[in-house]
Amino acid sequence: MGSLDTSDRSAFGDVGPVPARAGVGLKPAHYDAILGSRPDLGFFEVHAENYMGAGGPPHRYLTAIRECYPLSVHGVGLSIGGTGPLDTAHLDRLAAVVDRYQPGLVSEHLAWSSHGGVFFNDLLPLPLNQATLDTVAEHVDQVQERLKRQILIENPSTYVEFASTTLSEVEFLETLARRTGCGLLLDVNNVHVSCTNHGGDAAATIDAFPIEHVGEIHLAGHAIDTDDDGRPLLIDAHDRRIIDPVWVLYGRALDRTGPVPTLIEWDNDVPDWPTLHGEALLAEAWLRRSADNREALHAAAG
């Protein structure tokens, strides 16, 4: 198969790991713009499931882009928060994508998406308690063993809470990371969305987040609706620009983490390439400010 040969593990050897810069979610609508203009960008992220076909243009494009850019692979279908056993056939498919494209980062969600042989194509919530922590930790162990690498687990946007929840999301994720050695993907928009939806304090959540485990940050836009009592209900729509309060929360997170690989997610009503690239440039500005602040702090400390 020539250029599509996957056996050469050093195929992307010239392109290093994912840097502490801004990246964007790769969309087919932008393949040609990216390959034509080779924008200066930290990395691209793909949904693993979109590259699980046997062949065809998606693999050709991703191979060409991977040859020029660091890559992050983001799974949306493993159902790690499911109470049943993991779908090992799907885990094998994820392993094949990881083996083929050698991404610098691999991530999944604290959520479930399949039950009883049906895939719901959404990140569904779970009660956070000791029992679910045990199950999720087992699943994360199993994934990391199969992939022979660390994965990052992302905090989701949620719209309902459970009577059976006894742990905060921060407590849950921190224990999960300690127990399994997984890293965390801090989705700052999801913090804003979930805190608004459940009456939490987003800034306090960022301040309490187990920052030492954070390997990547996600930023996205969200939609605004109202709940059954007329209170704001934010929806993680990934269909528009990032709002200012989320940028401010991002800055707050960066003050704690220092520069971290940061992804702009825009999956619906996908804009033209310059608009999406513009959001990444904004994140780059925040990252530079964070690096400068660190330098100034170090200089001041002598």
Binding site: N121, L124, Y159, E161, A163, N197, D228, D229, L233
Partner: peptide, 28 residues
């Protein structure tokens, strides 16, 4: 397990999930 957490049935909240599934698959 969800309803017990709320004074009124959180229909609009739960419908976000119902809606996302159908809308995203119709889009596909």
């Amino acid at each position: 397990a969800i309803a017990a957490r709320y004074a009124n049935p959180p229909l609009r909240r739960f419908n976000v999930y119902r809606n996302t599934i159908v809308v995203s698959l119709v889009e596909a």
